[in-house]
């Protein structure tokens, strides 16, 4: 196969996968920067979103017109799924994280426990069998196949939806009051509090947004692949790599990191074609090596705050 064709095919697939990773990494970065700890339950939060969307879609049904091969009901279910995920995160925060006064490492370990709880509850309810949304799978878009690009309308829907959500977040961060307060709190919590910002309010909104995006990512992951109790957890490592690569605390870094890691993982098979003997099975390893190399040169990540800086 011609190199250009393979490049386009892998890049297109990579874009879809990256979209899902980005939805996870932004949420993780948000929570990391404002709640102050690495939330190991973030992958399973995505799983919660996927299953919540599944239930909602089962209730709403697939009637009505379709956009890009997805019934209107799916988008409605998606919104419900996002809301449910945010609610679950808020409840967890209130019941588990907030009362614990144990520092960020302690919270990290606690979040591992929370991850197990999410996963176990889902498994009790749904069994560990894989399942999928009741939406027919599609064939690749014909006119693109001759260029080597093999994606379906669903893939396009995933990318567009992810872009929409990310742009929406950007608008929120840059042009709304809440966004301004979030950025201020992330930058310097003490100063923010001193200038009258209600930190608690900002924290809660961060959880809502972070978990909501994760929930959307989970739903799309379920559409892209399958739903299984470990679906989100399986991607957690990659999402963490994306956040660290992009720089902890930077939402835009997380976006960039997610894109980079997702693309590297998806496009590794191209290397063998151009003569570099790194096989496709080393994709994940390659992504992490790139992350380490970047950190060696720039320990704060691409867009993070300099380590030890203000």
């Amino acid at each position: 196969m011609a190199v250009t064709e393979q490049f386009l095919e892998l890049a297109a697939n990579g874009l879809v996968y990256s979209s899902i990773i980005i939805l996870g990494s932004i949420g993780l970065s948000l929570i990391y920067s404002i709640a102050g700890f690495a939330n190991f339950a973030h992958g399973d939060t995505m799983t919660v979103g996927a299953y919540a969307t599944l239930i909602a879609f089962g209730a709403v049904g697939g009637a009505g017109f379709s956009i890009l091969g997805l019934p209107l009901g799916f988008f409605v279910a998606l919104v419900i799924g996002i809301v449910v995920t945010a609610a679950v995160a808020l409840v967890t925060e209130r019941l588990v994280y907030k009362p614990l006064d144990i520092g960020s490492i302690g919270l990290l370990i606690t979040s591992i426990g929370v991850a197990f709880i999410y996963r176990a509850l889902i498994q009790v309810q749904f069994s560990s069998d894989s399942r999928r949304f009741d939406i027919d799978r599609l064939r690749p878009i014909e006119p693109l196949v001759e260029y080597g690009i093999r994606i379906t309308k669903h893939d396009i829907a995933i990318v567009i939806s992810a872009v929409t959500l990310v742009v929406g977040l950007h608008v929120l961060l840059q042009h709304t009051d809440l966004g301004r307060k979030m950025r201020a709190t992330a930058d310097n919590p003490d100063l923010a509090r001193a200038s009258g910002i209600r930190i608690r309010r900002v924290e809660l909104w961060t959880w809502v947004l972070g978990a909501g995006l994760a929930g959307a990512g989970g739903a799309f992951l379920g559409l892209f692949n399958l739903l299984a109790p470990r679906m989100g957890f399986s991607e957690l490592l990659v999402i963490f790599a994306a956040v660290i690569l992009g720089g902890i605390g930077s939402v835009y870094g997380a976006m960039l990191g997610g894109l980079l890691i997702g693309m590297i993982v998806s496009m590794t098979p191209l290397l063998s074609t151009v003569g570099i003997p790194i096989g496709g099975e080393y994709a994940a390893a390659l992504a992490f090596i790139v992350m380490v190399l970047v950190l060696l040169v720039r320990p704060e990540g691409i867009a993070g705050e300099p380590v030890g800086g203000g």
């Binding site: 196969m1 393979q6 892998l10 697939n13 998806s266 496009m267 098979p269 096989g279 496709g280 099975e281």
Partner: peptide, 20 residues
């Protein structure tokens, strides 16, 4: 002939190479 890891979200790259 190539190995693949379990529980991945997508195997498109692998299948593309198999096809090739």
């Amino acid at each position: 002939e190539r190995a693949h890891d379990g529980e991945q979200a997508s195997y498109s790259g692998l299948l593309s190479d198999m096809n090739g």
